[in-house]
């Protein structure tokens, strides 16, 4: 994609006059799941066929919003009377709170976060309410792997509605190189207005988004991730910027935040982000910055940048011996079924 498209996606630069470029931009936005978000900022000014295309994005986003509202009610119902109050995270929370980052956003599944000690109970409650593990992950190895190495349970799918819920007990895999204090995020969460669920504070929301983009995974939805960071950063008052740096230190997210600030300065020319990055004194790796830029600009090609980010994502996730054993077991399991292993305590 072209760098300048990012500004158009968030409405700070006008739609391209050149028809071929405009067509390519709309097709890009659609295939990279940001058409609804783009449509939200342009719906009042776009006309004719451009408006028609945006309508498709708006209608889909409306469906996702309705789905999310229904699912939130079902989740609340499942936890009713237990004293547990799950925290909505990622896209679902932006949409539920009506944040700019959630306007027109696609939501395909719901992510919730609970304290590690509450996971066993939460799992039972969700299962009682009709959610179940998919066949693919309903085996001892996967169940063990998710619980002892990852940061979430295997995805739970509702038996009749087919909706998916991801239940997190950490923000990053247990094996991850970046050590984030997930419990501090949980302790600081606030009630979601009018609901029995909770959400992160504005600062924690941005930090989690930065962690998700730059300390986990291989930056696979660059356009969506950067738009998200831009809106979440804009939600934080300038007076609270110092506090954001302090919070990043406390929770252990200094480096992901630095990459996020670098990206906002680099792609949206945000002077506040640049100032804050300088103040933080952290220097992001130039190689990683280059690969991120390169992957964004050559989103569907860039084999080298893609490979590098892919390798980095595994490097960040777990140590080499761990990765080796995991891949070996996965391949072995394809040939021969694994003997039953006991579940770790607390996960029975």
């Amino acid at each position: 994609m072209k760098r300048q498209w990012l500004d158009i996606l968030v409405g700070t630069k006008p739609l391209p006059e050149d028809i071929l470029e405009r067509a390519e931009l709309l097709e890009f936005a659609d295939s990279h799941h940001v058409l609804g978000q783009m449509a939200e900022v342009w719906k009042d000014t776009a006309t004719g066929k451009t408006r028609d295309v945006f309508d498709n994005g708006l209608l889909r986003a409306r469906f996702d919003r309705n789905m999310l509202r229904n699912e939130m009610e079902r989740v609340e119902r499942a936890f009713m009377g237990t004293g547990l109050s799950p925290i909505l995270i990622k896209g679902a929370s932006y949409v539920a709170q009506g944040l700019d980052a959630g306007k027109g956003r696609r939501v395909s599944d719901i992510d919730i976060l609970l304290h590690e000690d509450e996971i066993g109970q939460a799992e039972e409650l969700l299962k009682a309410a009709g959610w179940a593990f998919d066949e693919a992950t309903d085996n001892t190895y996967d169940q063990n792997y998710y619980r002892t190495k990852m940061h979430e349970l295997p995805p739970l799918r509702h038996k009749t509605r087919r909706t998916i819920i991801d239940v997190h007990f950490k923000l990053l895999p247990r094996t991850s190189r970046t050590k984030v204090q997930s419990d501090l995020f949980i302790d600081a969460a606030l009630p979601l207005e009018g609901r029995k669920l909770r959400v992160f504070t504005a600062a924690d929301r941005l930090l989690h988004s930065a962690i998700h983009s730059f300390a986990d995974g291989s930056f696979d939805t660059p356009a969506r991730s950067l738009i998200e960071l831009k809106y979440l950063f804009a939600d934080i008052q300038e007076a609270e910027h110092e506090g954001l740096l302090a919070r990043a230190k406390t929770v252990g997210a200094v480096l992901p935040l630095a990459y996020a600030l670098w990206a906002l300065a680099e792609f949206f020319k945000d002077p506040l982000a640049l100032g804050l990055l300088e103040k933080s004194g952290v220097k992001p790796s130039r190689l990683i910055c280059w690969t991120i830029s390169h992957k964004l600009e050559h989103i569907d090609t860039a084999p080298f940048a893609k490979a590098l980010l892919y390798i980095r994502s595994h490097y960040m996730r777990m140590s080499l011996p761990q990765l080796f054993w995991h891949l070996a077991t996965k391949s072995f399991r394809r040939i021969k079924p694994q003997p039953e292993l006991p579940l770790p305590p607390g996960f029975q």
């Binding site: 028809i19 071929l20 405009r22 067509a23 709309l26 097709e27 004719g48 066929k49 451009t50 028609d52 295309v53 498709n56």
Partner: peptide, 9 residues
């Protein structure tokens, strides 16, 4: 020649 954006590509 493309003279407008399209619903389908």
């Amino acid at each position: 020649s493309l003279s407008d954006v399209t619903d389908i590509a």
